[in-house]
Design a binder for these strands. Structure first.
Length: 642
DNA sequence: TTAGGGTTAG
């Protein structure tokens, strides 16, 4: 066999971009006999197990059929499995390797420990630790560093310290792992001490500190630290953008993006996805559109993560047509995230049937749904009242698609039954589910009780919740809503009293509205700013007009049992009402008023929005915690089902 | 030809 054929095969391997491609090259190499060289098999395995998507099975098959695999080949497969959704499978490969009397080396342990860290398995981790001692590899720098990360991931800072302490010459990477370990354990001061002790720091160390502050919510410290950094790279900037955006500080996130560009640094795809996520959360459509323009100029719209973030931004801003344009026209390729985002976008608008059609189309394209896809699909069913379809899909999950339902999926089914008014069925389902129901499950059901009014069941569920999470204010609010709806004002008072005794308060609701590319946010409070004052005055004008049209407030939604007039005042000032009033005051009639609210819209506000859309001839698009409501000519796209 | 520490989307 000529060496040029071998070289040709290696070259062809490097050009492979898909499993199909890989199979063709493999077949060609087998014909010419060039498939047995260790260079070829190594490269092939690396491609199949690590680089290419959906090729892991091929790698496993190849390894199983190979006459005398070496440790290198096993290491590559162990690495691929460690990064797969089933990291524990790398242990099976390890066992197989030992059965063939192959000795694991430092590479094997680095990958195996990574697998244990990815599955957060402390028991597996410590067994591997013993094994590494047995093979004399526990003090190997790479092995020990991975072990530090593993123990940190499992919350065992003491073990991480011990492993690190036994290193005679830790390098900067090992020190960095220790910094992260302290942040993971919530010990910000400890991380700072390690940072101060470090003999050598590179920029990654500073970025680690930034990320640590951000993840722990220490935004102020992150900002100070960032300002003190002598050198900043794209990761430093992106950590600020993403960190502020993920904590709800959208203006700040945008500020960092602008500052970065002012400094002449080119934002990369991470900067853009971070900023787009900020727009998506707050519903800043105009800013999102500006970003879209910038992204197109840089050509980054062809990066999958960016186009997916664009699609999500439009979807969450209620621009379903724009989201569809990104999905159907602009994207050359779509992955599972793109499909799931589009399904979720339709579901949020209440287009359940369309969402299900897309789900089937996705499968026709050969994309296998994962657990998040199923959450979107089940959500689509519950928000469109498609009970039978939802249950059917739920039942097919594990047998047809190999996706084991998690507590979130069970929660969707509880929601599906509960929303449709089948409260007893939902309750039975929750009691009989094989996973122990968490507080979210019971809270979902309590929410359904407050929609459909079932005092007895609500009390029962509240007791279960009190055992699981005694201090969650939203449960008290939900229960008091159930009582208020039933006119049981004494019980409402009792709930309020116990909340006061535990010094609990309702989460403050906020709503945001975009006017002339500026986001204005409102909270239902007495703090008076000029904007708040303007909104309040307009709101009073609107409400008196609505009263003339026969509007009566739905007082059952008010938590407090106070004088009727005060009660009305309390709901009159709900943040979404202030936001819509401000929109009417500042925007021209043809413009759609788009509002984002952090909590679920209350019944009274929902009624008011419908009336406003009719009396003032305005179109209002409101995204609440759960879905979109499009108010037009006196009715809502949710058909009062939310 | 395989490695450890920092920022991305559902």
């Amino acid at each position: 066999m000529g060496s040029n054929v071998q070289l040709q095969c290696l070259y062809l391997l490097e050009q492979c971009r898909s499993v199909l491609h890989l199979k063709q090259v493999h077949a060609f190499a087998s014909k010419t006999g060039a498939d047995s060289g260790s260079l070829f098999t190594g490269k092939l395995l690396l491609l199949a197990a690590v680089t290419l998507a959906n090729a892991l099975d091929y790698a496993l098959h190849f390894l199983a059929e190979f006459p005398s695999p070496d440790a290198f080949m096993f290491n590559t497969v162990i690495r691929g499995l460690a990064e797969s959704p089933q990291p524990y499978q790398s242990l099976i490969a390890y066992a197989h390797m030992k059965r063939l009397s192959l000795s694991p080396d430092s590479f094997s342990f680095a990958f195996l420990l990574k697998a244990a860290a990815n599955s957060r398995s402390l028991s597996t981790g410590s067994q591997l630790h013993s094994q590494s001692i047995h093979y004399g590899l526990d003090a190997h720098l790479y092995v020990a560093t991975t072990m530090v990360s593993l123990y940190a991931e499992c919350g065992c800072i003491a073990y991480a310290e011990k492993v690190f302490g036994e290193l005679s010459h830790p390098n900067v990477v090992a020190w960095n792992a220790m910094v992260t370990a302290y942040f993971r354990s919530g010990d910000v001061a400890g991380a700072g001490q390690v940072f101060d002790q470090m003999p050598v720091k590179n920029i990654t160390t500073w970025n680690l500190m930034l990320a640590g502050y951000m993840k722990g919510g220490n935004l102020g410290e992150a900002r100070i630290f960032f300002r003190e950094m002598e050198r900043k790279d794209q990761v430093s900037w992106n950590t600020m953008i993403v960190g502020f955006a993920s904590h709800g500080y959208f203006k700040e996130a945008f500020g960092f993006l602008r500052e970065l560009m002012r400094d002449g640094i080119m934002p990369n795809e991470v900067s853009f996805t971070g900023a787009l996520s900020a727009c998506a959360q707050i519903g800043a459509f105009e800013s999102g559109k500006i970003l879209h323009g910038l992204i197109e100029k840089t050509g980054m719209n062809f990066i999958m993560a960016v186009s997916n973030a664009l699609l999500d931004m439009y979807a969450r801003c209620g621009k379903i047509d724009m989201a569809k344009r990104v999905f159907y026209c602009d994207m050359e390729k779509r992955n599972i995230v793109s499909w799931t985002s589009m399904i979720a976008a339709l579901a949020m608008q209440g287009h359940g049937k369309e969402a299900l059609e897309l789900f089937h189309e996705m499968m026709k394209e050969g994309i296998i749904p994962d657990w998040i896809t199923f959450i979107a699909v089940l959500y689509a069913c519950s928000h469109s009242g498609l009970v039978e379809q939802g249950v059917e899909i739920f039942q097919s999950m594990s047998c047809e698609y190999g996706v084991q339902p998690s507590v979130e999926h069970y929660g969707c089914i509880v929601d599906l039954y509960g929303r449709a008014g089948m409260l007893e069925k939902a309750y039975e389902f929750a009691k009989q589910m094989p996973i122990k129901p968490n507080s979210i499950i019971w809270r979902t059901l309590l929410g359904a009780c407050s929609i459909h009014g079932n005092v007895r069941l609500a009390e029962d569920i509240k007791m279960r919740l009190a055992e699981l999470e005694p201090n969650d204010s939203s449960d008290y609010v939900l229960l008091s809503n159930v009582y208020a709806k039933a006119g049981k004002w004494n019980d409402v008072i009792d709930v309020r009293k116990s909340m006061n005794e535990k010094s609990m308060r309702k989460d403050p609701g906020w709503s945001a509205v975009e006017v002339n590319k500026v986001i204005y946010s409102f909270i239902a409070s007495d703090i008076r700013s000029n904007v708040q004052e303007e909104a309040l005055m307009k709101l009073e004008e609107i409400m008196s007009r609505l009263r003339m049209e026969g509007y009566l407030p739905q007082l059952a939604n008010v938590l407090h049992d106070i004088e009727e007039e005060e009660k009305e005042n309390a709901i009159v000032r709900h943040s979404e009402k202030l936001a819509v009033a401000f929109g009417i005051a500042r925007m021209c009639e043809e413009e759609i008023i788009r509002i984002v609210k952090n909590l679920r819209v209350c019944r009274d506000c929902h009624d008011v929005m419908k009336l406003i859309s009719k009396v003032f001839k305005r179109e209002i698009l409101l995204r609440d915690r759960n879905r979109f409501h499009c108010f037009r000519e006196g009715s809502c796209s949710c058909r009062d089902f939310w």
